[in-house]
């Protein structure tokens, strides 16, 4: 009985959340507009100065490998972490 109830409860929860999401989406800045707050001085600095400052044509590369390189180091660490996690989950290690 309780098992049958779980999907129904989850459905009610998700529908309630979706209603609030709709109210929030209606408030967001219009999609694809140049004047959105997301396209502000940070965006302009990247687009205008990335080539001079980093010498890379692809601005996305300039961002992930230069402006936000610390993030990328940690991103590589996430991969390393998951490799260690899989090792400790599946491997028995050394047999004595």
């Amino acid at each position: 009985m309780a098992k049958r109830l779980v999907p129904i409860l989850a459905m009610i929860l998700v529908i309630m959340a979706l209603y609030v999401f709709m109210l929030a989406v209606a408030e967001l800045p219009p999609y694809g507009n140049v004047d959105n707050p997301a396209h502000n001085y940070v965006y302009e600095h990247y687009v205008n100065n990335a080539l001079e400052e980093t010498g890379v044509l692809n601005i996305v590369t300039a961002i992930i490998l230069d402006y936000r390189s610390y993030d990328t180091l940690i991103e590589a660490t996430v991969l390393f972490t998951s490799i260690m996690a899989v090792l400790i989950t599946l491997k028995k290690g050394e047999q004595h």
């Binding site: 965006y43 990247y46 990335a50 601005i59 996305v60 300039a62 961002i63 992930i64 936000r68």
Partner: peptide
Amino acid sequence: YINPLPTG
């Protein structure tokens, strides 16, 4: 150009 930051 589109905003490169979210893509990155």
